[in-house]
Each structure stands twice: as C-alpha cells, then as structure tokens.
C-alpha cells in the first residue's frame, strides 16, 4: 500500500535568448546632468512592474556619478522621447539599460572635459560617485552640484545620447540556420512536491532556482522576477486552464480561472549566477521571461518521482493525477496477475 502523502523531486534546465528574436534590436536614450547635481534620463519605455525604472536609475546614477534618488526618468512617450521599442522579450535591462549607460557616458564626457580644464588635469583622471566628483591622485574634489553649475557657466550643458544595438540575424526559411541572439542565458530549477494520493492534490514545497542573469543590477529585483516567474510556472503546471466550448469561454472570471494564491507558494530559493555578457557595456543580460521556463517540467518530474505517474498534458489537476494513479494501479495489478 502506498502512503497517502508522497514526496518527490524533479529538475529541469532551460535556456533563453535576450532581446528581440532573429532580427536587429535597437534602443535609444538621452541623458543630461542637470542642475543641483541631478540626472535626467529620457527613453521610450516605462515600468511594466519588473523594476526597470529603478534599474535605469541605478545605471544612470553609477555612470553620472550621482545617487539613484537624484535621477528623474522621463519615459514612455512617442512624441517626447527617443525610441526604445517594446517592453518585452527580456530586453529592458539589456537594450534600454545599455542605451542609458552609453547616453550617460556621453554626458559625462562633456562635463568631465570642462572640469578637467578648470582643474588643469587630464580628463582621464576624473572620477565621480554618489554626488561627488574628483580627480584621481589629487585632492581636487567638488560636489556634482557645483560641477554642473561650473560647466554651465562655461557655456556647456552636459547632455548626451546613446543607442544600443543587438545583432540578431534572421533564420533561413528552409533549414532555420541563423544567429537569433547575441546573448543567451541558462537556468535550472529543482522542485520538491508532496502529492496527496487520495485527493490528487499537489503542493510544491520548495523550488531551488539557479539562473544566469549576466550581471544583477539589483539582486533583490532579480529575485522578485524569479519568484514571480516560478509562481506563474506553478500556476500553469497545476491549475490554470483557459477553456473554450465551441469558441465560447467557459472560464470568464477568477472563480473559474484558478490562479495561485498565497497558500500555494513554495519556498523559493534563488541562486543568481553572473556570467557577464562580453558584447555589451554593462555585462547584464536578463531574467524576466527565462525565470518561468523550467518550473512546470521540474514540477512534473517531481510528481513522477513522488508517485510514479507522468503528467504529459498540463495542467496536472487533481483529477488527472487521480486518473493516472488509478491507471497505474490497474497496470501493476495486471502485471502481478
């Protein structure tokens, strides 16, 4: 006799391409070192929840030498900002992040040149961080606020622009040959489940998620993307099912279309791997979409490990698990007889 509650583990690996597929991807941004030692960034996308505005502010702060809270982002407007194309394809950090970095470097070049002239030092010695600017190897130092003011008094507004390109190529229509992306990420997740053999319910108790993101600009944000992706993967694995009957929706509300809630959430243990991208200034790749690729197969493999039934048709509802268990019982009985 089988125990009522059975546990098991499964693993699945995954890979993913960063930015738009099998084509050239591009994005642009403008930057300005503004009064008060603040920074202004303009680019054509906004937040879809992934934390891109914070990531861009961190990148801009780092590159401009100010603090993230000093950054103002003018975003999201086709009539007021340069093209950044779409918010998807795990391209935000890679495409917009690198554009912003390049735009900021351009603005800094102009500021640094003026400050170097004032100080009579080589431009290459100028450094800035956290609202301060200084010349390496000297005690020449001032606040970014003063530096911007000085630069403007000399007649220069420190503005810059940046554009970043990712070179994907199209696929051959006959044999599919091509180089669709210049950056790839890899992931692996382990799931531990408990299957109730009486009700057919599956609880996911733990997920260990290891993902290469290139470089984590904001590790907590990366974790958030992984946790959200895992739970969407769990939803698809176990409960979500949009159903139609002759074209008519049968699941037109959240009472019928079941989503994961707080009670369904496994402990999610994230390991961030940083294998930097050599083809971009920041070295970051991305995580938005890849996070959910391995979750469902890891869970299905864990269910098999636990109770010896393999669900090949998602979602693994309690009904499907019970039917598969019953079929398995019949089979083993058949073999015994």
């Amino acid at each position: 006799m089988m125990q009522r509650k059975m546990r098991g583990r499964g693993v699945a690996a995954s890979w993913y391409g960063i930015a738009r597929t099998a084509t050239i991807d591009r994005a642009g941004a403008w930057a300005e070192l503004d009064d008060g030692g603040t920074g202004k960034i303009v680019t054509g996308v906004t937040e879809i929840g992934e934390g891109i505005l914070t990531v861009l502010a961190q990148i801009a702060a780092e590159e401009l030498g100010v603090r993230p809270e000093d950054i103002t982002i003018g975003d999201n407007d086709t009539a007021r900002s340069p093209e950044a194309a779409h918010a998807g394809a795990t391209r935000q950090t890679y495409m917009i992040g690198n554009s912003v970095a390049l735009a900021c470097r351009d603005a800094r070049t102009k500021l640094d040149a003026e400050i170097a002239k004032v100080w009579g030092v080589e431009t290459e010695t100028i450094r800035a961080f956290n609202g301060e600017i200084w010349s390496e190897g000297s005690n020449l130092r001032m606040s970014m606020e003063e530096a911007v003011d000085l630069c403007k008094k000399r007649g220069i507004v420190p503005v810059g622009s940046g554009a970043f390109t990712a070179h994907g190529t199209g696929l051959d229509p006959v044999n599919g040959t091509g180089s669709p992306w210049q950056a790839y990420v890899f992931g692996c997740q382990v799931a531990e489940v408990e299957v109730d053999t009486v009700t057919g319910e599956v609880q996911v108790l733990g997920i260990w998620a290891a993902h290469d993101v290139g470089r984590a600009i904001n590790p907590r944000g990366v974790e958030g993307q992984i946790e959200g992706g895992v739970v969407q993967g769990l939803g698809q694995a176990l409960m979500e099912d949009y159903q139609l009957d002759k074209g008519h929706t049968k699941t037109h509300g959240f009472a019928k279309y079941i989503l994961p809630t707080s009670l369904d959430i496994p402990q999610i243990n994230t390991t961030i791997i940083e294998d930097r991208d050599p083809k971009s200034p920041l070295g970051a790749k991305g995580i938005g979409e890849p996070a959910l690729v391995p979750t469902a197969p890891a869970i299905m493999n864990a269910i098999y490990d636990a109770v010896g039934v393999r669900i090949k048709s998602l979602p693994a509802t309690p009904e499907k698990i019970l039917a598969a268990l019953a079929e398995r019982a019949m089979r083993t009985k058949g073999v015994a007889a």
Binding site: G51, L53, T54, A57, Q58, I59, A61, E62, R67, P68, E69, I71, R215, A216, I217, N218, P219, R220, G221, L282
Partner: peptide, 9 residues
C-alpha cells in the same frame, strides 16, 4: 549602485 538592492523608486 550596481549590484546594490536600491529600493524601488
């Protein structure tokens, strides 16, 4: 600021 858990703006 890169690699830092800057709070979401």
């Amino acid at each position: 600021f890169i690699g830092n858990n800057v709070r979401r703006l």
